[in-house]
């Protein structure tokens, strides 16, 4: 480091600005969540902020509702289905696109992006028409399938970036050490892609359990997922249960992230220093 001079004060200024910007971003992320969680433990029959007193009754009310409980269960199932379909389709597809560089590779990329770029209501409507014809409306898997289609690119981009960053000499080294291609894939390529697969999985799981617009069109009264059930129960000013439901989402998402990042192997992947 150089001592004194305009360089240093300039660097200090940049450092201060960066820290300020970071603070603003963190605040934007955290403040709404804090408000929701605080409001969800507020006493009283109406949702207010600042809270009028501490009470867990909104959560109790929420979880006492069999409708909400069933919807929560369905959302978790849909989330897991989204993950299952996404991994089964997304990981092999990403490997094919990145490694084997098929013709029309860019075309595939654009095609995939359509799922994200298309307004969700259009995607949802298309699936509604399709499912009505097929007569599968009311089951959970069609909802999961539609949500997966809309969110698959998030998983694929995450896996693709991990795969692109993977040093190809690792696989070559495995071959010289006596590993056949299947063994190389299982013991070297797949572990190397794990950070991307894990973060992609977290992303599509959270998107899967909280997806609203597609679910709104594709659920029936018997297959309502949590966001739809909450939306349906809204009449008049928002009750504290509303905040409690949002609070559940915040806690759930935090738990998923914390659990996944605290596995020893995961940690090793995320923080490996190369």
């Amino acid at each position: 480091m150089r001592n004194g001079g305009p360089d240093e004060s300039g660097a200090k200024l940049v450092g201060r600005m960066v820290r300020f910007a970071l603070g603003v971003v963190l605040a934007l992320v955290v403040v709404p969540m804090v408000i929701v969680v605080v409001a969800s433990v507020s006493a009283g029959s109406r949702l207010t902020f600042p809270p009028q007193g501490f009470s867990l009754s909104p959560y109790a009310t929420l979880l006492e509702s069999t409708v909400i409980r069933a919807a929560l269960g369905r959302s978790l199932i849909v989330g897991l289905m989204v993950v299952a379909i996404g991994l089964a389709v997304g990981v092999p597809a990403t490997i094919a696109l990145v490694r084997y560089r098929p013709r029309f590779r860019i075309g595939f990329g654009v095609y995939l992006l359509l799922g994200v770029a298309t307004p969700l209501i259009a995607t949802a409507f298309a699936f509604l028409v399709l499912y009505t014809r097929a007569g599968v409306l009311g089951s959970l898997w069609p909802i999961a399938l539609a949500i997966t289609v809309a969110n698959l690119p998030f998983l694929m981009f995450s896996v693709a970036s991990a795969l692109t960053n993977l040093d190809t000499s690792l696989e070559e080294a495995a071959a010289t050490l006596g590993a056949e291609s299947v063994q190389t894939f299982l013991f070297v390529t797949l572990p190397g892609m794990m950070p991307g697969i894990l973060s992609g999985t977290i992303m599509i799981f959270v998107l899967g359990i909280s997806e609203f617009l597609i679910s709104l069109l594709l659920t029936t009264i018997d297959s309502q997922t949590l966001p739809i059930a909450i939306f349906a129960s809204l009449r008049g000013p928002p009750p504290p249960e509303f905040a409690a439901a949002a609070g559940i989402y915040v806690v759930l998402a935090s738990l998923v992230v914390i659990t996944l990042t605290s596995f020893k192997t995961t940690e090793q992947f995320f923080y490996r220093n190369d």
Binding site: S169, E172, A175, T176, G178, A179, V188, P191, T265, D274
Partner: peptide, 20 residues
């Protein structure tokens, strides 16, 4: 003869140690 059957040792420029 594929690489994995050649029974050759190779040290790469990047070393290619398995990081995991």
């Amino acid at each position: 003869t594929p690489t994995y059957e050649r029974n050759i040792g190779m040290v790469f420029q990047s070393l290619a140690l398995f990081p995991h």
